[in-house]
Amino acid sequence: MSKFKTIAVIILMLALIITIFILSDFSESNTSTADYYIENSEKDTAAINAVTAIYLNYRVYDSIFETLILLVSVSAVIHFSWRKDHE
């Protein structure tokens, strides 16, 4: 069993190192989208806060599915309750 655990730990460490190596690859940073948002967000959407302009106008799918995630987690909490009576 200890051999199994050693192999599993080695594989996990390798996966972690590869993930860190992939994520830390910032050699060529492309900021054209961010520059566009910073320059044009107030003119396009009339929102002074650029974050609101992004999450309610440019990326409104993102906030819709973020609220859906909360709805699904509420359903999961209700479904897996220890007490089964509903009200």
């Binding site: 609220t67 909360l70 709805l71 987690s73 509420v74 909490v77 209700i78 309750s81 220890w82 007490r83």
Partner: peptide, 19 residues
């Protein structure tokens, strides 16, 4: 919606999870 969702989660954890 976030307010109602977090309140539901909190009250379900408080009153419905006792074991």
């Amino acid at each position: 919606k976030v307010c109602t969702g977090l309140s539901i989660i909190f009250y379900r954890f408080v009153f419905y999870e006792g074991g």
